[in-house]
Design a protein around this nucleic acid. Structure first.
Length: 283
DNA sequence: CATTTCACCTGGTGGC
DNA sequence: TGCCACCAGGTGAAAT
């Protein structure tokens, strides 16, 4: 489910609620595929540490942790993290901040209890999500492979696609080029840039690449403002749905009239993913 | 190497 | 009501 705008929304919500709080207890379900780091090691690493900050990198939620001091939020702002807890939500993952007595949803795979009484819960029916723990004393900090689409400069953006024979839609989904773009925002940004998703990435003109980067940035920023897209089950850290699905021009609108020209939206498969476009507006 | 396909999961929907 | 095929915000391993 969650792409850059949804993950950003969740990370901001979690950060606002748990920053400065201390983890007193962590529990994980026994689904081995969820853990890049074994569950027992994550429990050991999380318990006792303070959540300094929670932020997004690509589609990952990164919780910065510190072993040391007690309380004092002002002090926490100056602290260097000594560990990270990294959450990837896969297709259906949720990261929720709840009260301890809130009913435990089906497919809850992690419960992290905080000193304040709040709980961080990871819920993921399809179990495509991933949980990772990094001790920064003995390993490297998390780093996304691809560039941030909101920050990348135009010349660097253009260079990502140079010489590539694959479809631009497939290239946008490749997380080692850009991190954070998924199926919704790839389709929506190609629509706003007026580019057919099957176009060969390396053959886009300079003007098209400029339109594409601008469209991607505008669409992602607008989606963040509206709290992300709730197509079926996405909700933020407080369980609230987003509103950007109301702005979708092509995604999941197969057969419906294009908002700009009324031509029916078409659906094809590219890179194994449903791909939606307007055959008239996109060339 | 670059690129494509498929398996990994559960749940919802629509047709018969 | 059931059964089945197909679809879904992702990604890595295996195949080409």
């Amino acid at each position: 489910m969650p792409e850059l705008p949804e993950v950003e929304t969740i990370a901001r919500g979690v950060n606002a609620r748990v920053r400065g709080d201390r983890i007193v207890h962590a529990w994980f379900a026994a689904h081995n595929r969820l853990f890049k780091t074994p569950a027992a090691m994550q429990v050991k690493g999380l318990e006792g540490r303070v959540l300094l900050a929670v932020h997004r990198t690509g589609k990952h939620i990164v919780c910065e942790l510190s072993k040391t001091p007690k309380g004092n939020l002002n002090g926490a702002a100056d602290l260097q993290p000594d560990a990270q807890w990294i959450v990837h939500l896969g297709m259906t993952g949720r990261l929720l901040v709840t009260t301890p007595d809130a009913a435990v949803a089906a497919h809850t795979h992690a419960r992290v209890q905080l000193e304040s009484g709040k709980e961080l819960r990871f819920v993921d029916p399809r179990r495509f999500g991933k949980l990772d723990f990094r001790d920064l004393g003995s390993g490297d900090a998390f780093n996304a492979a691809g560039s941030e689409p909101l920050l990348i400069a135009q010349d660097e953006f253009a260079a990502l696609f140079r010489g590539r024979k694959l479809a631009i839609k497939a290239a946008l989904l490749n997380q080692s080029l850009l991190s954070g773009v998924g199926n919704i925002y790839a389709d929506e940004s190609l629509f706003h840039a007026g580019i057919r998703p099957r176009r060969e990435a390396g053959r886009l003109s300079r003007a098209e690449l400029e339109r594409l980067r601008a469209a991607l940035k505008t669409v992602l920023e607008h989606a963040i403002q509206l709290g992300g897209s709730s197509v079926s089950d996405y909700v933020d850290a407080e369980g609230m749905r987003g509103f950007f699905q109301l702005e979708h021009c092509v995604y999941l609108r197969t057969g419906q009239p294009c908002r700009r020209c009324n031509t029916p939206i078409r659906r094809v498969i590219i890179a194994g993913r449903g791909t939606h476009f307007c055959p008239k507006c996109q060339r």
